[in-house]
Design a protein around this nucleic acid. Structure first.
Lengths: 190, 190, 190, 190
DNA sequence: TATGAATGAGCGTTCATTCAT
DNA sequence: GATGAATGAACGCTCATTCAT
């Protein structure tokens, strides 16, 4: 299954992302979705076995692509602080440019769907980042506290930064980004 | 005249909070809720005009109680850093002890219900905190950046702190709390 | 039962009439009605055993009062055509001034409630009128056709006359009334 | 692809007509209707978007067919009185043979549904008849009064005629029909 | 008598999913 | 493979009526 029309396939994903980010998973109605992409409901069920399959497939795809990106983003040669900043800023930018995907992922984590994801997929995500943080600690640049805590801070502030920009409470300027990163850095640096 | 069972009223709220924090607003089914509190569906509609009324009533209650608490929690006499720390820790503790309420409020903000809240209720919330931050800036203790940004950092880290504790990734010890606050403080101090 | 507050009693009837004429019997909601007249629902059930009783009581009342009026309205001394015209015009006027009652009665006839009226009440209505028509036939002034037919014509045109006036398609002037009656008269006169 | 059972469609309309003429629009219960025609409730909603759509669709259909019939029924060549009689009798007959449809239409006019009909549908109905009446007035055969009044008389007597026959108070014989029409004619002729 | 509390039986509607061609 | 037809299981809500004080 899931072979035929690639265009439709993409349209389904795109539309699902759209609706989920606006109205949540419950807002996705199979009939609606089918109409939007110009398919009959029953044909939609040829592409995806059911609603769960639809959402899980998209989720797995998204997460896998995200992991790949993390790996590519790290430029080994840079000094630690700059390396971290680069990655951090990359994700801020990425989150803003892929709001829908991020929103989908965010909602996924709180939904019952998340629990059904294969562990292999769930684990894959954070590996990279912990390696990075370990390096910082080894170099004596980061506070010697649990990785989870440092990660939490990094991600929390990143999330708020994105929100501030999306909600037009802050401009996406070099200055502001420098400021925001300096604040996280101050928080986690030893 | 039959007499109203005050217990039921509380049970309704309690159960709603429970379900919302576990499955979101959509997870609240009037029939289900009625059964949980030992009432018939129609009686539930005697207490609340409809589902929206149920949720909004609880929301307004929660927010008002939250505002009151904020006001009470501030001990004017303390030096700024300590004052902020006290408040911040109070909310960390409170959030942990009232997970369901907090989860409800968190979801409320992203739901269409939030937009329907009377402005008077919405506005009341933030006043206190901005006053506190203003003081910190006036005393030259906080970075001279937008209040929204400082608030965002404070709240973001608070949220993550709570999550770490709830998910058993960190103990709720004096040491850990000192650590966490020191991290936020480092981030926002001038 | 049904003894206490005469004012409430009247208010109930008045409100029921109002609602029925606007939205039909189904539009009468016991709870609504109670609120309108400043009674609790349960007290409304002290006045009337149930919704059917409420409607039937009003119906019987209305019909009985209507019959009485018919009797009073006939001035024996007049010549037949004038006598008929007087009665006919009386009813046109009455129908206009008591739209709600008439509407109630009209709807009653098509409703399942009508079948439940005691025959004694149903029969009483037309007696008078048939006597009048019989007289007209005896005097050779009316077509010698079945009373039902003559009655039907009289009533049908009366109904349309009322409608024309109520819907502002005709003025309630002496001329117009003369015209309308002359039309019925032409139809039924021998 | 399963093929649509055209019978069902008709059965829905037929049953709706039946129920409406017996118990009014409120008497139509979607679940009941579905059962009558051997469909599940949800399938009924495949045929019609909702209850209003069901009723409005039938209404529009009926009115349009009625208008068409009016147009066809007029035989231009006949002298006026005969032409009018033909049409009048046609509608008497039609009303008797299509009681349910007529009852539906009658109730429609008093229901809130009527106000929601597109004007194009509402207007179409009366054009023909007014043309006919105008002719009668031009030829000096009808009383020179407002068309609304003449129409009202024609329709009112028609309605009563139908009722008399349906309620078995009069036979549908040539004689009786001649009589009834002569009565209307006497009423409206100049 | 008066009334707030409580309820069962229903109703219109939605939606993910399956059937049959 | 594609699709229109069909459906069961819910869900939110209403309302006449009864209960219990």
């Amino acid at each position: 299954m899931r072979v035929k029309d690639e265009t439709k396939q993409l349209a389904i994903v795109e539309n699902t992302l759209c609706v989920v980010s606006e109205k949540g998973f419950a807002g996705v109605k199979m009939a609606d979705l089918a109409k939007r992409v110009g398919l009959s409901v029953s044909t939609l069920y040829v592409y995806y076995k059911n609603k769960e399959d639809l959402i899980m497939s998209i989720a797995v795809d998204l997460i896998e692509r995200e992991s790949q990106r993390s790996e590519q983003e790290i430029v080994e040669a840079l000094p630690f602080k700059l390396k971290l900043k680069t990655v951090w800023l990359f994700w801020v930018n990425f989150s803003i440019n892929h709001r829908k995907e991020m929103s989908f992922l965010e909602q996924l984590k709180k939904s019952p769907y998340y629990g059904k994801l294969p562990n292999s997929v769930k684990e894959r995500k954070s590996k990279l980042s912990t390696a990075l943080i370990d390096q910082g600690k080894k170099e004596g640049l980061l506070k010697n506290v649990d990785n989870d805590i440092l990660m939490a801070i990094l991600i929390a502030v990143m999330g708020e930064t994105v929100k501030l920009i999306i909600h037009d409470k802050m401009e996406l300027s070099q200055n502001n980004m420098d400021l925001m990163f300096s604040m996280v850095w101050d928080a986690i640096k030893s």
